[in-house]
Write a protein that binds this DNA or RNA. Structure first.
Length: 504
RNA sequence: CGGGGCGUAGCUCAGCCUGGUAGAGCGCUUGCUUUGGGAGCAAGAAGUCGUCAGUUCGAAUCUGGCCGCCCCGACCA
C-alpha cells in the first residue's frame, strides 16, 4: 500500500468523516440494525471497562455505593417535575404493551402483533432522577438516613435525531450518581466534589485537559438549580461536554416527596444531586488524541498497553521467538502501571507482520514491541511508541526495557496530555468586540474557545446560537477567568469571562 | 418534524437515462512465491439487485405505495 496515512480522509480534510473511519479502523464499534444503537466491539468495550473500573474506584473512595434501578419508568413519574418532563419529552421511547400474539400469514410466515396494552405506559429511562427519587422517598425518614450516596452503572435511551457512534447514540452506557442531603450546602459540596472527580479523571486517566465551570441557565439540566460541567476541546476545535454534575436543589425532592424529620423535629425536603459520564468519553478520547493513522489510547485506560509482535522470518525459529515473546509478556505482566497490572498481549496470529503492526497502530495501542531472532541474540527489543510516528522505532536492551517500562508508559501518558493541552491553549482566545467574535466564528474560520466578558440574557444567548451556531460552554471557575470588563454584546459590566464555542 | 440524496456480494460502488434476470475494487478461502513486514501471482466461494404492487413476452433498469439509511436544519450525555 502506498497510503501515507492509515486513515482517509485525514483530520484536516474532513474531521467528521475521519472520526467515523477511525472508529471503524480501530474496530471499536459499529452501527447495528437497530436505529441509533451501536454494537460496542471488544476493543471499544475493553476501554469502557477500564474507564468504568477506574472511575468506580474513585466513586467508592468518595463514599458512594452502587445499586441498580428499573429500566422502565412509569409515565406518571415523569409528570412530577415539569421542567424535567419538558426537557426529555421529545426523546423518549415508550413501552405500551406487554405481550405479543403470533399471527400466521397466508404465505406461511408469522407476524407478531402487540397486544395486552398497559394501563400506564412506561418510558425507557432517559435518566433516572424520578425513579431513584421515588426509592429515596421510601428510604429516607430521618436526618440520620442522610446523606444517601448512590451510583448506578447502566444503559439509558434517548431517541436522538442524528446518532453518531459513541458521541450521540439512542442507547448509551453511563453511570449516574444520585445523592440526597440534609442541607443545601452539603449537596452543593457533593456536586463540586464529583465535578472535581471528573476533572481529575479526564486529566489523569484519559489525558484530556478540561475546563471546569458552570452551565448557564439555557444549558442547564432540565430541573436542576445548578449544572457544572467539564468541557474539553477536541482537534477540530469544537467543545465537548465530557461530564456533568447537577445540584438539583429541592426540586426533585418535592416531586418525589423525599422528606425527613430534621434535627429540629420538623419535616424537611432533602437536597439532591445527580452526576454522570457516558460512553461519550470514548468519542471524546478518540477526537482528542487520534491522528491520521487512527486512535491513540492513553496507557492508563488502554485495553492492552503493550502488544508484542513476534517477528518470525523463518519457520524453524518461529517457536523459539514465540516462547521468548511469551516469557517477556509474563515478566511485564508482573509489573504495574497506574496501580494496575500491565495489560500485555502477544499477537501470535499467522498474519504478515506489517498487517498486524498497522492493525495495532489503528487500534491505538500505546506501545508495540517487536522481537525476532536477531533481538533474541542481541538480548534487545524494538520499541514503538504510538504517540510518535509509525516508523519510529528504538532498540532497547531487554533488561533495560523491563526496568523502565513504567516510566516509558508514563511518558506516553504525559505526552498525550501535554499535546492536548497545547492544542487547547493555542486555540483559546480573549476577544473584546462583537466584530472580533463574529470573525472568530465565521463560516470558514477555525474557531476555538472564545473567552468573552458576558452579561447577556438567555435570549441573547439564543440569538447568538441561531446566528453563529455558538453557545456558552461554561462560566469557568478559576481566577484566570475573573476579569472586569464590558459585555461584548450588551456593553453591561461583567466581572468574568465565559467560554463560547461550537460544540458536539 | 421540514429540505435534499440513496438503497445491487461482508465493505465501497459501477450498471439504470437507451428494459433481455449481474460486474469491479477491497475483504474472504486455497496454492505457490515473497517477507524485520500493511507484498506478488493464480484459482475459488459469495448477490432471489430494500420491499410490495403495476406496465411489459421480458424489469436491477420504467411507474406508484411502503420500509430503511445518509446528508443539511431544530434537539442532544
Amino acid at each position: 500500500m502506498s497510503n501515507a496515512t492509515a486513515i482517509t480522509p485525514t483530520r484536516d480534510k474532513d474531521f467528521p468523516e475521519w472520526y467515523q473511519q477511525v472508529v471503524r479502523a480501530a474496530d471499536m464499534a459499529e452501527n447495528s440494525e437497530v436505529r441509533g444503537c451501536m454494537v460496542i466491539k471488544p476493543w471499544g468495550y475493553g476501554l469502557w471497562e477500564n474507564i468504568q473500573r477506574q472511575l468506580d474506584a474513585k466513586f467508592k473512595a468518595t463514599g458512594h455505593v452502587n445499586a441498580y434501578f428499573p429500566l422502565l419508568i412509569p409515565l406518571s413519574y415523569l409528570e412530577k417535575e415539569a421542567q424535567h418532563a419538558e426537557g426529555f419529552a421529545t426523546e423518549c421511547a415508550v413501552v405500551t404493551h406487554h405481550r405479543l400474539e403470533a399471527q400466521k400469514q397466508p404465505d406461511g410466515t408469522i407476524k407478531m402483533i402487540p397486544t395486552g396494552e398497559l394501563a400506564e405506559p412506561f418510558v425507557i429511562r432517559p435518566t433516572s432522577e424520578t425513579i431513584i427519587g421515588a426509592a429515596f422517598a421510601r428510604w429516607v425518614e430521618s436526618y440520620r438516613d442522610l446523606p444517601l450516596l448512590i451510583n448506578q452503572w447502566c444503559n439509558v435511551m434517548r431517541w436522538e435525531m442524528r446518532p453518531r457512534l459513541f458521541l450521540r447514540t439512542a442507547e448509551f452506557l453511563w453511570q449516574e450518581g444520585h445523592t440526597a442531603h440534609e442541607t443545601a450546602e452539603e449537596a452543593i459540596e457533593e456536586t463540586r466534589t464529583m465535578h472535581k472527580v471528573y476533572e481529575d479523571f479526564l486529566r489523569d486517566h484519559l489525558a484530556i485537559p478540561v475546563i471546569p465551570g458552570e452551565k448557564t441557565e439555557r444549558e442547564r439540566f432540565p430541573g436542576a438549580v445548578q449544572t457544572f460541567t467539564v468541557e474539553a476541546m477536541v482537534q477540530d476545535k469544537k467543545a465537548i461536554q465530557a461530564g456533568t454534575s447537577h445540584y438539583l436543589g429541592q426540586n426533585f425532592a418535592k416531586a418525589a416527596n423525599i422528606q425527613f424529620l430534621g434535627r429540629d423535629n420538623t419535616r424537611q425536603l432533602a437536597h439532591t444531586t445527580s452526576w454522570g459520564v457516558s460512553t461519550r468519553l470514548i468519542g471524546t478520547l478518540i477526537m482528542a488524541h487520534g491522528d491520521d493513522d487512527g486512535v491513540i489510547i492513553p496507557p492508563r485506560v488502554a485495553p492492552n498497553q503493550i502488544v508484542i509482535l513476534p517477528v518470525t522470518p523463518k519457520p524453524e525459529t518461529r517457536q523459539e521467538v514465540i516462547d521468548a515473546c511469551e516469557a517477556l509478556a509474563q515478566t511485564l505482566r508482573a509489573q504495574s502501571f497506574g496501580g494496575e497490572p500491565l495489560r500485555v498481549h502477544v499477537d501470535k496470529r499467522d498474519l504478515q507482520g506489517g498487517t498486524k503492526n498497522w492493525e495495532w497502530i489503528k487500534k491505538g495501542v500505546p506501545m508495540r514491541l517487536e522481537m525476532g531472532p536477531r533481538d533474541i541474540t542481541s538480548r534487545s527489543v524494538a520499541v514503538c511508541r504510538r504517540d510518535l510516528g509509525p516508523k519510529a522505532k528504538e532498540f532497547v536492551p531487554k533488561e533495560e526495557f523491563i526496568q523502565s517500562v513504567q516510566e516509558r508508559l508514563g511518558e506516553i501518558q504525559d505526552a498525550l496530555l501535554a499535546r492536548a493541552k497545547a492544542l487547547r491553549d493555542a486555540n483559546m482566545k480573549k476577544l473584546e468586540t462583537l466584530e472580533e467574535f463574529k470573525a472568530y466564528f465565521a463560516e470558514n474560520s477555525e474557531g476555538g474557545f472564545a473567552l468573552m466578558n458576558w452579561a447577556g440574557s438567555s435570549e441573547d444567548e439564543d440569538a447568538l446560537s441561531k446566528d453563529l451556531k455558538v453557545t456558552i460552554r461554561c462560566i469557568p471557575h478559576g481566577d484566570q477567568f475573573a476579569e472586569e470588563g464590558k459585555c461584548f454584546l450588551t456593553g453591561k459590566p461583567s466581572s468574568r469571562r465565559v467560554i463560547f464555542a461550537r460544540s458536539y
